[in-house]
Design a protein around this nucleic acid. Structure first.
Length: 255
DNA sequence: ATGGCGCGCGCAGCGCGA
């Protein structure tokens, strides 16, 4: 089973690239973030014509998440239980015996902003939810745009980014707390090239110069981590015409 | 060098992303 995550930065703009990518990579499940449209405007027919089913939870202009799958998916949740949130950042579903969580973690803007505090509260509520979900679901995967670079090796210029949003110690601590639940960072289960990133700024020719951050992740429960055979960043998608600023991450599981 | 690019909205220029 191939599990993938991709922040598409508008599914409307990225639909041609997405369809091309689905055809080329053929993931069994792909979690999309920043679809940026209301459910009534989701391109369901085009997705179905490509052979995929779609679950989605969107809103106008901002946020929005979707899970595309070759096999039928059963809806589980569109919010963190008990966490009042009008922003569409969560979608959970059961697919092929795996409980899949798709996350678009708040960006946080800057460490002195209200949005940063919202991000930390959101991550604490997420941890509590996943803690109980892990007890009930041995085969569990948490994919998405975490907006956290877990360590200095995930940052092109760690000194310049130190303490800044996406790299601050409280955010990294929140990420480590997810790992402390028993989740594993799929990417770090394997030997990886140095300077591996999933996001590059559109400005400053950042992609060409590989000035990036690794902020999109696939976390796996122990039972799934045991069965994970590879986890890779698909940089090819970032090279495309009119690309998203994020590259997809794909994990292959032997299940 | 706090801009730089690309998105949505909506028709000018701003908020936002990361």
């Amino acid at each position: 089973m191939k599990l993938a995550t991709w922040n598409v930065n508008s599914i409307k703009v990225r639909l041609p690239q997405l369809l091309e990518w689905l055809k080329a990579r053929r993931p069994d499940v792909v979690c999309l973030q920043e679809t940026k449209l209301e459910d009534g405007r989701f391109p369901q027919q085009e997705i179905e014509a490509a052979g995929y089913q779609a679950l989605y939870s969107g809103q106008k202009t901002y946020n929005g998440v979707a899970i595309l799958s070759l096999a039928p998916a059963r809806w589980v949740a569109t919010a963190i239980p008990g966490f009042g949130d009008s922003q569409k950042r969560v979608l959970a579903a059961d697919v092929g015996g795996v409980r899949v969580f798709n996350l678009y973690v708040p960006n946080g803007q800057s460490v002195d902003s209200d949005k940063y505090h919202y991000k930390l509260k959101w991550l604490a509520a997420l941890r509590d939810w996943l803690s109980s979900e892990l007890r009930a679901n041995p085969r569990l995967a948490v994919l998405g745009d975490y907006n956290i670079a877990p360590g200095p090796e995930d940052v092109h210029d760690p000194a310049a980014w130190e303490g800044r949003v996406l790299c601050s110690e409280p955010e990294r601590e929140a990420f480590r707390e997810l790992l402390a639940l028993g989740l594993r960072d799929g990417f770090r289960l394997f030997e990886q090239p140095e300077r591996s990133y999933t996001w590059w700024d559109y400005r400053m020719q950042a992609f060409r110069r590989n000035l990036g951050l690794r902020i999109d992740h696939i976390l796996l429960s122990p039972a799934l981590a045991e069965r994970c055979r590879s986890c890779e960043i698909d940089r090819e998608a970032r090279r495309a015409e009119r690309p998203s600023d994020h590259a997809p991450v794909i994990a292959e599981l032997e299940i």
